[in-house]
Nucleic acid binder design. Structure first.
Lengths: 230, 230
DNA sequence: GCCTCATGTCAAGAAACGGTCAAGATCGAG
DNA sequence: CTCGATCTTGACCGTTTCTTGACATGAGGC
């Protein structure tokens, strides 16, 4: 995940300063607003990975900010509040917040709870995201562990698949014999590059029309192999 | 969601009493254990909707309980702890916990945070898996815990059902032997892939017309099994 | 042309893997 | 306690997959 994005809705300048220092230091992309109304707009336009909101805002009640966010967004919401009463926490959490920290809080704890929130989001995303590659008539779906050639499923043995998957993960780039052996046969494979020749032959027989003139799995003599991406 | 199920891993009798009163009063189905090892087994067998774990257990460190749960389960974990140091919180959250309450805590807050956890789970479940799946003549209703083949109900034993349910939850994708064993037999199953063979045979006999040529439950040699969705 | 090195092809034995059956062991209900 | 259902475990067998060796091919240097 490149640079998770955070919207902070907080009016106290001191806390904003504090958050800005901590969060940018951790590599977060940070957007700040001082009012609830602005905050709602900011979340809508930035589509952040997590929202931090103070309950004591000058314009709208923090609880209402949460409720209005929840009408259309499932972004994780972490509440900061000067009030530590149990009733306040319950109301905020039931309004749709995911976590609640009473001031004063440690920055380490906030960061840890943000990591929890990001983990949740990542989890939801992972299932929907698919890592798949299509090159000409060859289609590889790493998520489902399937390989299609001209729409027909090809059965690969575990080693064949691991070899192909390694090439796919570095598609377009050369991978050395050494590296392939290491990733497919494990660290004790040494320099048995014989294995590679045998299995590249297997893959070509299954995936290439003319295995003497490979269009996908090409040899880089003396170096390694490469999966062409065009 | 009918009667959410909670596993409590806690050794202090006083707190157990407290939790029991509060949670059963709210309509939770409650299972308690006093040690980490028992807790892991209990979570595996009960498949709860949320887990509450105390960090100060007599046998294993609470952090390790969390880490070992996270090897195979994504169930929400709420940590209770007598220690309120920031470092403790950070470690537990980074180990995979979803929330952290320092004792003494209010029961209302705990209940609110449990509602948050259940909300998350409902969300993830809804996204990743329909509660009912129909493929050809096979119909599976996870909500009602019923399996129909050509409209006729099939009786499955608990393990058979859990195995099928795990495959359904990841329908279309390959699930490794290791993962299936973890999710069905619990964390101590090791690599007894023998179990899998026996039970896949049972399922096929009940669900496939020709168990030698399965149309739903297919083997991915050397890797795992897959429930076909087409 | 001929030699050599890196690579590709083929096939056979060995090893691992998965499917099946059935005999104990265990558990829970009556 | 007894019975039946369910789970665990062991043995067996056929098949797939991996490893290994022998040999073929082909490009580049002499």
């Amino acid at each position: 995940m490149p640079e998770p994005c955070v919207v902070v809705i907080e009016d106290e300048p001191q806390i904003r300063l504090f958050l800005r220092a901590a969060l940018t230091g951790q590599g977060y992309r940070l957007f700040e607003t001082g009012t609830g109304e602005d905050g709602l707009v900011e979340v809508a336009s930035r589509q952040p990975d997590v929202v931090i909101v103070d309950l004591g805002l000058p314009d709208i009640d923090g609880l209402e900010v949460i409720a209005r966010l929840r009408e259309w967004s499932t972004v994780p919401i972490i509440v900061l509040s000067a009030r530590g009463q149990e009733q306040d926490k319950i109301k905020a959490l039931d309004a749709g917040a995911d976590d609640y920290l009473s001031k004063p809080f440690g920055i380490g704890e906030l960061l840890a709870r943000m990591r929890v929130a990001l983990r949740h989001r990542a989890h939801v995303d992972r299932d929907s995201a698919e890592s798949t590659l299509t090159v000409g008539d060859l289609h590889i779906d790493l998520g489902r562990r399937r390989v299609l050639i001209q729409g027909a499923e090809v059965h690969l043995t575990p080693i064949e698949y691991r070899l192909l998957a390694t090439l796919v993960r570095h598609a377009g780039k050369v991978i050395t014999h050494r590296r392939l052996l290491h990733e497919v046969w494990g660290p004790n494979a040494g320099d048995q590059s014989h294995y590679l020749r045998v299995y590249m032959a297997h893959l070509r027989r299954k995936l290439e029309k003319d295995s003497a003139r490979p269009r996908h799995l090409v040899t880089e003599p003396g170096v390694g192999y490469r999966l062409l991406t065009e």
